[in-house]
């Protein structure tokens, strides 16, 4: 996997690059702000751009602008956004292909982080569990009808995990996970019971519609 890391804090940027390298990925570009990120992406066209949402000069939403630019200019490049706090403004982008959003400290769970990064690079999605939790915690009659396990599965689907990923996370068999996902779709009156991006889209659009 060829990766560009965009992060204004040098220590963190180097740490991230090292993390990818340790895992056997190739870091093809490092950027300290939005402009550098754009040129790095344009230059090396990586599989994945990992970018901080807050970057110089204004430290507000530079990362999001870069993400939108990448989606327009290089639709094949996956974008994984990182931030220090739960940022609701990304849900729009996540429902598109090849987009992820995680809190920064998720990088410390190396395996899950790399899994999410690879998913995004492959055109899948990744949504931070904290953000998913705020979505799923919504007061909603349909959601109330879900069992605790079904809610868990719904959240993991929203995070972008595949059935295999969900099974691994919950220590269940894939078949059991499949039956849970079917139940969730039925109870929420959703269609597209697949195992890919369309499923994430359906789940997210349901959760966001509340």
């Amino acid at each position: 996997m060829r990766v560009v890391v965009a992060e204004d804090q040098v220590l963190l940027r180097d740490g991230l690059a090292r993390l990818f390298r340790d895992a056997g990925h190739e870091v093809v570009g490092l950027a300290g702000d939005a402009d550098e990120a754009r040129s790095a992406v344009a230059e090396s066209v990586p599989d994945l751009l990992v970018a901080d949402i807050r970057m110089p000069p204004t430290h507000t939403e530079e990362g999001l602008e870069v993400a939108r630019w990448v989606r327009e200019q290089h639709p094949g490049v996956g974008v994984l956004m990182l931030s220090q706090h739960v940022y609701g403004g990304v849900v729009d982008l996540v429902s598109g292909r090849g987009f992820g959003y995680l809190l920064k400290d998720r990088v410390l769970d190396v395996a899950d982080f790399l899994d999410a990064a690879q998913r995004v690079a492959a055109g899948g999605s990744a949504l931070d569990p904290d953000l998913v939790a705020t979505l799923v915690r919504r007061d909603d009659d349909a959601l109330d009808r879900l069992s605790a396990r079904e809610r868990e599965v719904l959240g993991l689907m929203a995070e972008g995990l595949t059935n295999a990923g969900i099974a691994a996370r919950l220590v269940l068999t894939e078949r059991t996970v499949e039956s849970h996902t079917r139940a969730v779709f039925m109870k929420l009156d959703l269609h597209g019971d697949g195992d890919g991006h369309r499923r994430v889209q359906a789940v997210l659009s349901y959760l966001r519609a509340q």
Binding site: Q9, L11, L12, G15, L16, R18, L19, D22, R54, H59, Q84, H85, K104, D105, V107, L108, V110
Partner: peptide, 24 residues
């Protein structure tokens, strides 16, 4: 809030990454 997010928190994450690197 900025200082907490961009300062202390980032430092801690960077330290964590260092530890993970050592661990690897």
């Amino acid at each position: 809030e900025r200082d907490l997010h961009d300062g202390a928190q980032q430092q801690l994450v960077a330290i964590g990454l260092d530890l993970r690197h050592l661990q690897a």
